[in-house]
Simulated assay, not measured.
Amino acid sequence: MASQIHKRVVELFPRKLITPVTGALALVIGISGGMLFFHFGEGLVKSAHEWLGMLFVVFMLIHILSNWNAITQHFRQRVARNAALSIVLVTGLFLGSGAVSQTKDPNLVSGALEEAPISLLAVLFKVDEAALIDELGKRGLVIANDGQTIQEAAKRAGVDGHHVIKQLVSSVAVLR
Rank of each mutant, 00 (worst) to 15 (best):
V88N: 05
E135Y: 09
K138Q: 05
A112W: 14
A116L: 12
G92S: 02
E135P: 00
S110W: 12
W68H: 06
N67M: 01
W68L: 09
N145K: 03
L65T: 12
F94E: 01
S97Y: 09
V100H: 12
S101I: 13
W68A: 07
L93Y: 14
N107E: 09
V127E: 08
G140T: 13
L124Y: 08
V123L: 05
F56T: 05
L55D: 00
M60A: 13
L120H: 10
Q73W: 08
L61A: 03
I87R: 10
L61S: 01
K126H: 14
P106A: 08
S101N: 11
L108S: 07
K104F: 10
L124T: 13
N145D: 15
G137V: 12
S110Q: 15
S66L: 11
A130L: 08
I62P: 00
L113G: 03
R76N: 15
N82Q: 07
P117R: 00
L141R: 05
A80K: 01
L124D: 10
A80Y: 01
A131F: 07
D134Q: 14
A144Q: 15
L93E: 02
V142D: 09
L85C: 04
I64C: 03
V109L: 15
T91N: 13
D134M: 12
G92I: 06
V100S: 06
F59M: 10
V142P: 00
L113Q: 00
S101Q: 11
L141Q: 11
L120W: 02
F125R: 04
H63T: 15
N69V: 10
H63N: 14
I64D: 01
Q77P: 00
R139V: 05
H63P: 12
L108K: 10
D105Y: 03
A112R: 14
P106N: 04
A70N: 06
L65G: 10
V109I: 15
I133D: 11
G137F: 09
L85R: 02
S97R: 01
G137K: 05
L124W: 02
R76Y: 14
G137S: 12
L132R: 02
I62V: 13
L85V: 06
V109D: 11
A112M: 10
F75W: 02
L95I: 11
S119Q: 04
L108C: 04
F59W: 13
I64N: 05
L141G: 14
T91D: 13
G96I: 03
A144S: 13
A122K: 10
F94M: 03
R78Y: 12
A144K: 15
F75Q: 07
S110R: 12
N107D: 14
A144T: 15
W68S: 04
D128N: 10
I87W: 08
A131I: 09
V90F: 09
E114A: 12
A112N: 15
E114D: 13
Q102I: 01
A131Q: 13
K126Q: 13
G140S: 07
V57R: 02
H63G: 10
A83H: 07
L95R: 06
A84T: 03
T103Q: 06
E135H: 08
I133N: 14
I64L: 13
K126A: 13
G111Q: 08
G98A: 11
E129T: 05
P106L: 07
L85K: 04
R81Q: 06
G96A: 09
L136P: 01
A122V: 13
G96R: 11
V79N: 02
E135L: 05
E115R: 13
E115L: 04
P106W: 09
W68R: 04
